[in-house]
Simulated scan of single mutants.
Amino acid sequence: MPNQSMNSKPRAAIIGGGFTGCALALDLQMRGCAVDVYERGDIASGTSGRTHGLLHSGGRYCVEDVEAGRECIQENRILRRIAKQCIEFNGGLFIALTDSDVAYGDRFALGAADCGIEVEELTSVQALKLEPNLNPTLLKAFTVPDGSFDPLRLALAFAATARRYGAVFHPYCEITHLVRREDGQVTGLEFLNRHEDRAYPVQADIIINATGAWAGDITAMAQVDVPVRPTPGVMVAYNQRLVQRVINRLCIPDDGDILVPQRRMVLIGTTSFEHGDVNYIPVYEEQIELMHKRAAELVPAVAQARMRGAWMSARPLIAAQGDARSLSRTFECIDHADQGAPGLITITGGKATTCRLMAEKTADLVCEKLGISAKCQTRDLELVSYRQYYQGSRSES
């Protein structure tokens, strides 16, 4: 049974144990809330555990999605300080393979300067000296402060630090119902403990929906909606680490425009399309073949590498007009009081790189609603070891 001991702290229930939910648990717990996190699987078992692990410099967005580009470089610098245990500081390159890529480079350089992203233009000879396996026909390149991170370690580092401050995590607990009063106020939830196959009720002063691509499933329980378009994409991993840096195609965002080294592997991502059921997204063979082709364009040696695995993941993008590829990668914090469901807040959109910022802005809104004046403290707090999440853990459900 959840710990429902009486105290003077406002109780916040977070639904979703991905990057944002774990970062939000830390932020709210440090500001004086009693926080419980409910996750239907284990930590980062949804979209957060299926990312390619890119620590974005913002370079991918600095031309077409400037707000997202600025958010990424800001949080890139913060995560390098507070979560260095999870990050490989390998840097990245944007490479031009065609004349149109070269022409885009001018816009890229201006966009990077506008967003405050440190870049340096390289000749093809200089780029090939850094990364000999690059396509030898490349025409120019730019350095960017990209990095790669271990997705599970990042989520667990936030969760372990949140737990140290008193947050309580309830894995394998699936939300089945939101409790509302006659006036519409959301006052609690019910969850199914999947280990026990037993349901429990929970009261809370505020409930935060941090379920990403599944946000609409939660808000439907309160008869409200969210502007989320789950947008899946395929990623393919290969059994050799063919580059040391993140390799980006110098072009507008496109399918297969990034190659990320992870440990002894390299992986290519991603496509972008729409699919109705985020609980089951098929891995389409034609998309795997497209990724293989695009990866080999960046690094020809991929053509001889063995595929280690392929998987799908759905981005929780904010709905707008246009195709899925054109949707912004920034985020939105939604107060459902405006829709007749006070007590329920949704945070959606964004990137793994911006999870701490997403948590901060959500915590600002939560604290405003609860009358808490405490400010965010997570910008400079170094996270404890991710290993501590499981070391000495107590039963919390």
Results as ranks from 00 to 15, higher is better:
residue 210 A to W: 04
residue 189 L to W: 02
residue 123 T to G: 15
residue 228 V to L: 05
residue 226 V to L: 03
residue 121 E to G: 15
residue 329 R to K: 09
residue 116 G to W: 13
residue 16 G to Q: 08
residue 151 P to D: 13
residue 128 L to Q: 08
residue 27 D to V: 03
residue 320 A to G: 10
residue 374 A to W: 14
residue 23 A to H: 08
residue 140 K to P: 01
residue 368 E to D: 13
residue 116 G to L: 14
residue 144 V to N: 12
residue 225 D to G: 10
residue 200 Y to R: 03
residue 124 S to N: 15
residue 69 G to I: 08
residue 45 S to Y: 06
residue 100 S to M: 01
residue 203 Q to W: 01
residue 259 L to P: 11
residue 211 T to H: 13
residue 335 D to T: 01
residue 47 T to F: 05
residue 144 V to F: 14
residue 57 S to M: 04
residue 94 F to C: 06
residue 396 E to G: 03
residue 240 Q to V: 08
residue 280 Y to V: 03
residue 212 G to P: 09
residue 355 C to M: 08
residue 126 Q to T: 15
residue 288 I to E: 14
residue 254 D to T: 09
residue 65 D to A: 12
residue 216 G to R: 10
residue 52 H to M: 06
residue 336 H to Y: 01
residue 244 Q to M: 05
residue 86 C to V: 15
residue 82 I to C: 06
residue 347 I to D: 08
residue 79 L to N: 09
residue 138 L to F: 15
residue 44 A to H: 04
residue 216 G to V: 02
residue 295 A to F: 00
residue 55 L to N: 05
residue 323 D to G: 11
residue 165 Y to D: 03
residue 355 C to S: 13
residue 34 A to L: 04
residue 197 D to Y: 02
residue 259 L to A: 11
residue 280 Y to W: 00
residue 74 Q to I: 09
residue 206 I to V: 13
